[in-house]
Every structure is written in structure tokens, then in C-alpha cells.
């Protein structure tokens, strides 16, 4: 299966859009008509064909454009990619995980040849052909984590495990929902989740941490998270909030369909073999409201979820300013009919 990579932008003129196929495979995150935090972790097992869960690492039509956007972010702010010195083994583990997975599941685009420590990596969409020695940083043009994550969709964090906690000691973060790697690097699991409201009191993070400390090799897990973004902007970082925050004031009843996006994060976690670290990947998927309502079930359900969201959650996710306008717009697509259980379109 050859993917047709789109030429599009996530900034300035915002030409991003989803093809009808991409809409149908969108990881819609609500299986009920209301939303509340939960430790919604499940095994990251292969899912239905063509879904974003079909393979461990999902490559889609936005691949090339997203990688171009990441390169622009890193050029402007190199602090988006950082790694503490003790994470080098985990960086190599990540190289292996991503290259193996991409080459195995998308052989028409990526090829990996291994001869002991001598590896040969070909990335056709980005025009890369690299021979290197696995484990020898000097044989790559940049450090291993940065090298491979400049070629893979999604943000990646490497979590060191010590003293019965997980420590965010490395990462590349250019498509984030308003959190700063530069600020959070070195924090433990409880600390970097500090700004999240409600969930702490529900014990969500205590249970999640206990679960993740025992995460096993060969048994990755995933969960979905969501927020909303005005304009299809991947880089909604706090660093640049003074530039993009104003977008939230530009929503009108006329432009909701094109401007307001549901942003879903497919978060996956793997135990890495050599380092015993955990890789935490956060892959963002965007969908415009006018694309979302082409699936009648999702239109009805998202209208109800957004309408009934607790105000502190709406505030935390930064939706308050445009929630009402969006709910009004969505209400036209909700006839009050019951929705079927589960995530997928009818």
C-alpha cells in the first residue's frame, strides 16, 4: 500500500486538510456521549486494518508535511529536543523500535538492513539514505533520538525508571498541547502532570504510575487524550502561546467549520529493552469540525460531549472562549437521535 503524501502547511496559510479516507480512520476518542477522566489504558495491539492502530507506529498522508513542520520548529527553538546524558542507551533503543516498525509495516517507503551493528536505513519519502553503526553516535548526523524522531510523526519522550518513579529525562516535543519539554525535563510522573486538574484527586495518576512501573517488554499500551485547537496548528507550545493564543478570539459562527479542530492524541508506551526506559509517544491527529460532521454519529456525540463538559476541564483545555459558538454550530448536526456504543463510525 503506497501512501500519497500531501503537500500542506500547519502554520501561516494553514492548508492542512484530511482526505475522506483520513476522516474515516480518525481516532475519534469518545465511546459515550459524555467525557470524564479515566485510566483508559489498553494493550497497544494491532487494531482494525487501515485504522491508526493497525501498526505500532502509524504513518499517514500528513507524514512529509509534519516532518517539514517539525524541522521548522527545531530551527527556531532547539530546546524542543533535549536529552540528559544518562539517556543515551534509551535513545538507541528508540532508534531500533522506530526503524524496525516503520520498515516492517511500510516497506514501500522505508527499508532497514542490519548486518550486526552496521545498519543501513532508507527513508524514501524524505530522501534519506544513511549507513551507520548502531551504538556509535558519531556515525549519525545528529544524536540518535533526534535523528529518528525527525523522521517519525508524533512527539516522543523517554522516561527513565528509578526509585519507583518515572523521570522525563529526554524528549522531542514540537506538536504539543501547551506543555514545555524545556520546563518539564527532569520531572517525575507526578510532577509533570501537576497542572492537570481533577485527575489527581481521582487517583488517576497514582494508578497509572503503578501500572506503568510494571510495563513489560513486548506489551505496549496506549490511550487517547484530546483537546481542541484553533486552526490546524501542530505547534501549540507554551513557548509560542503569545503568538497563537490570539487565534482563540477569532472564532465566529461563520468560520467554526473550518477553524475549530478536534485534536486527538494517540499516546503509546513501550518498555525499551537495553535501557529499561519507557518511550512515551504522543501522536496528534487533527480534524476540522466540517470534516468531523461528515460522520453523523461523531457529530451528534461530539456536540453532546462539548456541551456537557465540566467548566474546569474546559478551562484547562483552553476551550472556554469558543466553546459556546462551537456547541451552537454543532447543534445543527445533532437531531437528538441515540448514538451507537463504541468509537467507530456506523
Amino acid at each position: 500500500m503506497t501512501i500519497q503524501f500531501k503537500k500542506e502547511t500547519f502554520r501561516d496559510d494553514f492548508t492542512f486538510s484530511n482526505s475522506p479516507e483520513a476522516i474515516r480512520r480518525f481516532p475519534f476518542p469518545f465511546d459515550k456521549d459524555q467525557y470524564m477522566y479515566a485510566v483508559n489504558i489498553e494493550q497497544h495491539m494491532p487494531g482494525p486494518e487501515k485504522s491508526p492502530y493497525e501498526f505500532p507506529i502509524d504513518i499517514d498522508e500528513h507524514y512529509v508535511a509534519e516532518m517539514e513542520d517539525r524541522a521548522l520548529v527545531l530551527k527556531q527553538d532547539p530546546l524542543r529536543c533535549q536529552s540528559l546524558p544518562h539517556m543515551i542507551t534509551a535513545e538507541w533503543d528508540l532508534v531500533e523500535l522506530l526503524m524496525e516498525s516503520m520498515a516492517k509495516n511500510y516497506p514501500e517507503h522505508f527499508q532497514l538492513t542490519r548486518d550486526g551493528d552496521r545498519w543501513h536505513w532508507v527513508n524514501q519519502p524524505l530522501g534519506i539514505d544513511q549507513r551507520f553503526t548502531f551504538g556509535d553516535t558519531a556515525t549519525l548526523p545528529c544524536p540518535p533520538m533526534e535523528y529518528i524522531t525527525r523522521q517519525c510523526q508524533g512527539d516522543f519522550n523517554l522516561l527513565d525508571q528509578r526509585h519507583d518513579n518515572l523521570w522525563m529525562d529526554a524528549g522531542i516535543v514540537t506538536t504539543q498541547a501547551d506543555w514545555s519539554l524545556d520546563f518539564d525535563i527532569g520531572m517525575n510522573f507526578m510532577e509533570w502532570h501537576a497542572p492537570v486538574p481533577i485527575a489527581h484527586d481521582l487517583g488517576v495518576f497514582d494508578r497509572a504510575l503503578k501500572f506503568l512501573l510494571n510495563l513489560q517488554q513486548g506489551r505496549p499500551v496506549r490511550r487517547l487524550n484530546w483537546t481542541m485547537t484553533i486552526n490546524p496548528r501542530l505547534d501549540t507550545s507554551p513557548e509560542n502561546y503569545h503568538k497563537w493564543g490570539i487565534d482563540r478570539t477569532t472564532v465566529t459562527p461563520e468560520n467554526v467549520g473550518n477553524k475549530v479542530h478536534l485534536r486527538v492524541e494517540l499516546q503509546a508506551l513501550w518498555r525499551l529493552p537495553r535501557s529499561n526506559a519507557i518511550v512515551f509517544s504522543i501522536r496528534a491527529y487533527l480534524i476540522k469540525m466540517e470534516e468531523l460532521v461528515t460522520i453523523p454519529k461523531w457529530a451528534r456525540r461530539f456536540h453532546r460531549v462539548l456541551r456537557d463538559l465540566p467548566p474546569e476541564l474546559a478551562d484547562y483545555k483552553g476551550l472556554t472562549r469558543y466553546r459556546e459558538t462551537t456547541v451552537d454550530w454543532l447543534s445543527k448536526y445533532d437531531d437528538g437521535a441515540p448514538t451507537s456504543p463504541g468509537f467507530f463510525p456506523d
Partner: peptide, 10 residues
């Protein structure tokens, strides 16, 4: 699968 409850502190 191997499980590590006694890791080296890196």
C-alpha cells in the same frame, strides 16, 4: 519476557 526490578541507576 524479562522484567527488571533491580535496575542500575543510570
Amino acid at each position: 519476557m524479562p522484567v527488571n526490578l533491580f535496575p542500575i541507576v543510570r
